[in-house]
Amino acid sequence: MTEPGPAPEGATAPPPPPVIEFHGVGLTYPGPPPVPALLPCDLTVLTGDYVTVVGPSGSGKSTFLNIAGLLDRPTSGRYLLDGVDTGAVGDAGRTALRGRRIGFVFQSFHLLPHRSALENVTLALLYNGTPRGQRLALAREALERVGLGHRLDAVPSRLSGGERQRVAIARAVVARPSLLLCDEPTGNLDTVTAESVLSLLDQLHGEGMTLLVITHDREVAARGRRTVTIRDGVLREREQQHEESGVRT
């Protein structure tokens, strides 16, 4: 099941470790009868990759997301994030890794109501040791990068769906994570808005961000450079049908 990433392992300089390395990672919910949610699988995501994960609901996509996002522990195998064995660190360490290395983008945005866009973005800097004085500047910079420099003080209820997701993306990238983990990022958006959000993701990818996008939408899946399919808990990688150049503008 192992498929090497498209980027060749260079021997010239010490290569950065892959962002994600799954070695036989699987999860089975205990208790009679045991339910296998994700069968043991291998996967490598290199720096700068754009990987989409597709599959019908109930296939194990969420389980995969939870494991990759360090929200859940696999019951088998080893998971290395940035070369750090996540099985070897305790809960506090996993939380710290999650806060510093992974940016989450959710289908339902998960913005705090009654807090301005700027405050929502600074929230991502609250738990990772960013000095207080720098947070506002970093958050402002991130919001400008997603094209919301003019809506810094708007509360979520005054933002459109696309704008909300842009705030969420700004929040996910403000801490400069190694991995941007998007769970159905366009699931709550209309086609036009979805397109703008996907363009933003393309742009981030172009700037060197590693993306892992989970979706059931084939259109969205087509944007990635690699596509991974999960069906009945089995993870399989297939070659991208489209040419990348055709997708990225």
Partner: peptide
């Protein structure tokens, strides 16, 4: 990238 060796506390 974030620093290589993480400080594993928040």
């Amino acid at each position: 990238r974030a620093p290589r060796v993480p400080r594993l506390t928040t």
